[in-house]
């Protein structure tokens, strides 16, 4: 089956992104595919390149990057939710005249339509709410 996952919670403040990682690994282990992970609401914080946890805590964006690269998963961050929370790629940083950008590699800013599309086209859309 083809899965997509929606994540609405930020890392280090609630469990949803961690639950989603566990779930994603189990989905792949059962030989399904994951088309897209969509980050919405505070879930957009999972895409910060500046996340710097203590050494004994998992780097959540890095874990998503690794999983996405290995299994060809799209990591899509809602652009409207991200920009207002200060998560910008190079293009948005330019648009809003910011000195720097902080969206981690492997993540893409895009519209909420990508979440609608995942619901329409995938066999399963599983949401991890905050």
């Amino acid at each position: 089956m083809n899965y997509s996952i929606a994540i609405y919670g930020g890392p280090y403040s609630d469990q949803s992104a961690h639950s989603a990682l566990h779930f994603a690994r189990a989905v792949l282990k059962r030989e399904h595919s994951i088309q897209r992970v969509f980050f919405y609401h505070d879930g957009v914080y999972n895409s910060s390149a500046l996340v710097s946890p203590p050494q004994d805590e998992a780097n959540v964006p890095a874990q998503w990057q690794e999983l996405a690269k290995e299994h060809d998963i799209e990591l899509v961050v809602c652009i409207a939710a991200a920009v207002r929370r200060g998560l910008l790629d190079e293009k948005e940083a330019k648009r809003y005249s910011k000195a720097t950008h902080n969206l981690a590699d492997g993540f893409t800013l895009s519209g909420l339509g990508q979440l609608i599309d995942a619901g329409m086209t995938c066999d399963r859309l599983i949401t991890f709410g905050a």
Binding site: F23, A26, K29, R30, H32
Partner: peptide, 20 residues
């Protein structure tokens, strides 16, 4: 159930609804 069991439940269901 473990996470694999969670995935199995999603396979068998017609749809999954998340309450949070």
């Amino acid at each position: 159930v473990d996470y694999q069991g969670f995935v199995e439940l999603t396979e068998k269901a017609d749809s999954v609804c998340s309450w949070f």
